[in-house]
Structure formats: C-alpha cells, structure tokens
Design a protein around this nucleic acid. Structure first.
Lengths: 234, 234
DNA sequence: ACCTGAACACCGTTCAAGT
DNA sequence: ACCTGAACACCGTTCAAGT
C-alpha cells in the first residue's frame, strides 16, 4: 500500500497524538508530489484494485491531493500509463549480451513473464499504449544484441525475437483474460457438464483448462521455440 | 456502414420525396430493434472508429434510437462486447475434426488470425471479457478434437492448443499494440536515429520493426511450432 | 412491449483563482 | 510554483413516465 502522510492531516488525528507528533512533525513530513510518486501510487493502486478502477480522482485521493494537482507533474492519464509500463520494464533484469544465448534468453523471458504475472494490468496497458519507453527499448536492445551475437542474421534475429515476444505476450494474455468476468466459474462448470455433448473435447480437457498450472505450460512451449530457433541457427 | 432507416424519419426528408415514399412506406420500413441488429451495429462501429469510441449513446444514435432503448434488448455494454466476440468467432471456419492435423491446424489458425486482423478490437475485448461464448467454445472444441484425433494425449493436446493459441494471440497482440499511439512515427524514427548509440540493435533492426510484413512473420513462427509439436508426437 | 427524458454517480481535462 | 473549486463535455445505467 501507498504510504500517504499528507492525507493524515486531512483526517481525524491518530489514536495516540504524542507518538504522532514525535514521529512526524508536520512541516517536513509533507513530501512533495512528483512524477515518480504518482507512478508509484498508480502501480500500487492498479495491482490492488485493477487498472479499470484507476481514476485521476481516486489516485489523487490516494496521494492526499485533489485530482487536478496531478496535472502539474504528469501530462495526462495516458502519461501515467506510459510511466507504469516503463516502471515494469525497468524491473526486468537485462540479459547479458554475450552469454550463451539459449540459457540467457530463457532466463530473460521467464523473468519478464514474472513481472507480467505480478502486474496483471501490464499486458492490457501495453496493448493500448505500445511499448516505446526508454526501459522497454533498452530491454529490447539487449535481447536483440544477444540474439545477434549468437549468430542470427538481422532478419532471423527479428523473427526470433518477435516469436519469443509473441509467446510471452500470448501466455500473459491468456493468464490475464483468464476466466469469464461476470459469471462465476461455478456456473460455467455446471454449463460445461450440461453441454458435454455439444463440446465433448472442451469438457474432457476442462480440468487442464481450469487449474491451468501456468508456469509449466509456458516453459513447455518456450523449449519448443528455443529448440526450433536453435535448429534453424545451425 | 450500418443502414439505418429508422433514423431517416428524424432527419430532414430526402431530396426526392416521391422516390422516398415509393421505396419505403413508413409503416413497414421501421424494422424493429433487436439484439442481432445492435451487435451488428456495434461491430461495424468498432471496425470504423475503434472500440474505445463505442458508447451506448453513439450506438443508439447509429440505430436511430435513444441509448436507453438498447437496454430492452441487451443486458448492458459488456453484453454487447460478448456478442461482438461471439460474432467474430462464429465467422472463423471450423476445422475438419479428422483431417491431417498439421495442414488443418495451420489453416484454422491462419483463418482465425485473418479475423483478428480484420477486427483489431477483438484481441482487446477478448482480454477484458474472456472467451466463453458459444462460438468460441465450439471453435475450441473442434480444434481440441482435431489434435486429440491426431494422437496427442489429453495433456499434450492441451499443451499444443495453448501454445498455438498463445502464438496467435501474441501476434495479434503485437499487431494491435503496433506503434505508439500519441506520438507520431516520424518522431520515433528521428529519436531512434538520435539514440542509435543507446539502442544500437533496435536502431539497426528498425526497418524490420517498422514495415513488419506481418503475415510472413506469423507463418514463420507457426511452422516452427507445428514442427516442434509434430516431433514430440512421434 | 417498447421507447423516452430526466436523473444519478461517475469520468478526464481545462481554467481562472487562490497561496 | 504548486494546489484548488467550479465547470465542461462526456460516460453507463436506473427508473418513472409515456405510447
């Protein structure tokens, strides 16, 4: 959760005013608003409540400020979204550019997926905003360099990266789009049982679709892709 | 574009009232509103203007009706979204369940991709709504049956399908998320030239990233995946 | 049965006004 | 320089009222 000192001055005093005054004297605890704090709060809020719940007014409240104040530090809501995307990309460790490519790319892709699952709104934002921030460019540059150094041609480097990115985004997508939103899974499963004669294969594979132990699935496909690319390299 | 007869009665008369009266006598041309017509209009509107532009009020206007009338035939906006998704899935030809699996699955996946590119909003909606409508279930059931009949175990069938679906959604995703939205491509390319020393690999591969002849890319990866899956089958 | 206007509780964003 | 209140032009959705 975002720690919001500012806000406390607008609310009733804390249970123990002595500790309160001692720990945070009003004048210096009022840390100034800035872009970084806004992005931080937005990421946290989206993690906790979903991006679709994020609004300028709520974000302002979270920071103890009116919505309109945000516009002094941020261009608009899309700018905040771009900042959130960049923040996530910045948290993915960059691949060593001259390592053995199969293990290095596997590691990198798995780390990226970790971040995408940790921030389920990421894939959504990426789709509507694109990914041309500094962090994403740097990340991409390193990955391309790794593939190039491994011996892929320019064209095949692009092919390989596109394929790895698609696999990653595709799985992240499936994870996020997950289940039906409004209807409960109970209803769906009951429906599946009822309609087993209409969709026999879906019904039989429902257990796999349901629990969907995700990491294993993703790694399975990743190996096939890496193997295929490696075969084409030699 | 949606043909909207109803609306004409709220607007100034057509240039030639004689033809007008002859062709469409007011009483019977007023085709009643229903779910299907609403979904139709929504698909067309989203194709033309993007989903983010679609609102109940605009959709109503498109149909010559107030926004509130829509609620007589549709639960809410999400219900419309679900209808749109189902409509697209219904337009993908189902795979023959007992054909040779590699050619059949390739054909099916490519046809699905055709629809995803024809309706760029599809991937977006799918992500926020899930895909458990009748058409998508039927489509999925056939695909799973095809893989099962080819000899895959239940578990491998699920793996294979998940992988193919991820590849498809991932590429569709990349296509949709395409370029940066606000900033113009000019600016980005100029920036890339300026920052060639920061992102040398991105800069060198920019031509591939830019034009991105999409279908070839997608097919390239699809072959690798099909080959890999086939190897694991035998 | 179907459509409507008015209303409610929200949005993102602008702008003049405050300190 | 930073924050604010009021306002604007939009949302999705409900509901009582019309036919």
């Amino acid at each position: 959760m975002v720690i919001c000192i500012h806000r406390k001055f607008r609310n009733p005093p804390l249970p123990n005013p002595l500790t309160y005054d001692a720990v945070m004297p009003p004048t210096e605890t009022r840390l100034p608003l800035n872009r970084e704090r806004i992005i931080d709060a937005a990421v946290t809020y989206a993690d906790d409540n979903g991006v679709e719940e994020l609004s300028m007014r709520k974000l302002g409240a979270e920071l103890g400020v009116e919505a309109m104040s945000l516009y002094n530090h941020v261009k608009n809501k899309d700018d905040i979204f771009d900042g959130m995307i960049d923040r996530v990309f910045a948290s993915v460790p960059l691949p060593a550019i001259d390592a053995e490519w199969t293990t290095a790319i596997r590691e990198t892709v798995l780390k990226a997926m970790d971040q995408f699952t940790a921030h389920p709104w990421m894939v959504n934002l990426l789709m509507q905003r694109g990914n041309y921030g500094n962090s994403s460019l740097l990340f991409m540059d390193r990955a391309l360099g790794l593939l190039r150094n491994a011996g892929f041609s320019d064209e095949d480097t692009h092919h390989a990266w596109q394929m790895l990115a698609s696999h990653t985004m595709g799985y992240a997508f499936q994870m996020v789009s997950g289940g039906p939103k409004d209807k409960d899974w109970e209803g769906i499963e009951g429906q599946l049982a009822d309609l087993a004669e209409d969709y026999p294969n879906v019904a039989r594979l429902a257990p796999y679709l349901g629990d969907c132990e995700f990491a294993g699935e993703f790694a399975f496909g990743l190996e096939i892709i890496i193997d295929g690319l490696n075969a084409r390299l030699h």
